[in-house]
């Protein structure tokens, strides 16, 4: 008995094994299945690129164009509002600041459909703005704003004030100090904010279904449509394109972060800021 006990020595690190197995089965394998479906024929099951044939048509490129324009505008507006707000928040005394930051960040954890519904009530029903591209844009800005604010605020609040004082002492005016010192130092926060707004904005379909009009589609609507129709292979092909886009943007952001700060970790996500 004692011998068998010694032959298997339990280490604390073995506690991580169950999750490793679970996540391989339920995270990695499903993604591989998705990729497999994207490249196989619905009937024969053989390798094919036909699922991507939609990309030869002009209408899909219009969808992609509108989708990217929407995501770009959402990201830009979020940034233009979040950056000054983050600076303003940093000017408040530390003990009062916590509550204020919480006020702006809390909506991030409230159901997104609920927030979209409230936006619909205010802008569509109360202010009588018609459903369409513009209303969709407002909805997206409302929905994704906290995700831009949090990383920017986090990086600005951790900045050492002596950098700016040094810059001022060396004769730079406030504008120059901002452009040459503060803004470059906050790039990692901006990058993760942009990533956390842009990617969901490209892939969402619920916001546009509720606030947009049926005259145009976004990329997310396209993906949802094919899965709903039961044409899984074509749907998987679209989802695969989305996956590639995400991988590219994560790679770009980690490369940018490495340029700014070689020690920084690749990506800040919702959980890491906890």
């Amino acid at each position: 008995m004692t011998k068998s006990k010694h032959s298997y020595h339990f280490k604390k690190s073995h506690f991580a094994f169950p999750y490793t197995i679970i996540s391989i089965i339920f995270v990695i394998v499903p993604l591989l299945i998705l990729v497999y479906y994207a490249f196989t024929d619905k009937y024969t099951g053989g390798f094919t690129l036909n699922n991507f044939s939609m990309f030869g048509e002009g209408s899909l490129w219009i969808t992609l164009g509108i989708s990217f324009l929407m995501a770009f505008l959402t990201t830009l507006i979020c940034f233009l509002l979040a950056y000054p707000l983050a600076i303003a928040l940093c000017k408040i005394n530390a003990n009062r600041r916590f509550i204020l930051v919480m006020i702006f960040v809390l909506p991030m954890w409230i159901n997104s459909l609920l927030r979209i519904y409230s936006v619909k009530l205010l802008f569509n029903d109360f202010l009588l703005i018609d459903r369409g591209f513009f209303l969709s844009l407002i909805g997206m800005v409302y929905d994704f704003f906290p995700f831009m604010l949090l990383p920017i605020y986090t990086i600005l609040s951790q900045m050492n004030n002596s950098y700016f004082e040094a810059s001022t002492d060396l004769g730079a005016n406030p504008y120059k100090t901002f452009m040459k010192v503060k803004l470059p130092l906050s790039i990692p926060g901006i990058v993760s904010g942009v990533l956390m707004v842009f990617m969901p904005a490209v892939s969402t379909f619920a916001i546009n279904d509720i606030l947009g009009s049926s005259q145009y589609w976004l990329f997310g609507n396209e993906i949802y449509f094919w899965f709903q129709k039961g044409l899984y292979n074509i749907g998987s092909a679209f989802a695969f394109i989305m996956l590639v886009l995400i991988l590219i943007s994560v790679a770009i952001s980690s490369a940018l972060n490495k340029i700014v700060d070689p020690r920084s970790k690749s990506l800040k996500s919702r959980g890491e800021t906890l």
Partner: peptide
Amino acid sequence: TMVNADIVTAAAFMMF
């Protein structure tokens, strides 16, 4: 799991 777009995770689960 955290970075992947919801719709991709969702589609992958559905196929699985």
